[in-house]
Design a protein around this nucleic acid. Structure first.
Length: 187
DNA sequence: CCCTGATTCGC
DNA sequence: GCGAATCAGG
């Protein structure tokens, strides 16, 4: 255990592949996963032999500029690109949403548990700023909201305590004490 | 100046 | 293997 953000675990590599294949840029992926920089993501992508999605040398890559959303326009449906080289796991969108959560600290419950929390009926979460990846800063809560493959994907964005990836509210969800995690609230 | 991925190169 | 620094471009 005790894995921090670094170290490419299987889950992390899977998520990386998935997001990359869906058209997210390296910086988006890096920010979403937390604990890694876009360089790290790119480096890993290349080491995995996944490159070639975007054409090099240029800005053909920066379409997302027009709209800030994270969004993969048509995800895996349209382009044969998906079948080209990426296995692209299908049907686990929810898992992806969970996996997008940053490095899982020691106290973090299993992904499934978090998924349940994240998708539970929403009571009174503090109003989230609903910021996109581009607007996320270090001191903003990066609790994922929505489907990472969808255009409405964004983050909570509320203020965080330095060093903590989530706002106080989402920290309570993310760092549930083992004993008390029965009564969890959602965002 | 913002961004993109690609590559190099020290660790 | 990893990722910061750098490169090359939009």
């Amino acid at each position: 255990m005790s894995e921090a953000g670094s170290g490419w675990s299987d889950e992390r590599v899977e998520l990386l592949k998935k997001l990359w294949s869906e058209g997210l840029s390296a910086s988006q992926i890096a920010t979403a996963m937390g604990g890694v920089t876009r360089n790290a993501v790119i480096g890993k992508v290349h080491r995995l032999g996944l490159s070639g999605r975007a054409k090099s040398t240029s800005g053909g890559a920066q379409k997302p500029r027009k709209s800030v959303s994270v969004a993969a326009p048509r995800a895996a449906t349209t382009n044969a690109r998906a079948t080209a080289s990426i296995p692209l796991v299908q049907g686990n969108t929810a898992l992806a949403a969970v996996a997008v959560a940053p490095e899982r600290p020691q106290g973090m419950p299993a992904p499934a548990a978090v998924a349940a929390v994240a998708t539970s009926p929403a009571i009174a979460a503090p109003e989230s700023q609903r910021v996109t990846i581009m607007e996320l800063r270090e001191n903003m809560c990066r609790w994922p909201m929505g489907d990472p493959t969808s255009a409405d994907f964004c983050f909570c964005g509320n203020r965080t305590t330095p060093g903590i990836p989530y706002c106080t509210f989402h920290s309570r969800i993310a760092y549930q004490p083992p004993e008390r995690r029965r009564d969890r609230r959602s965002n």
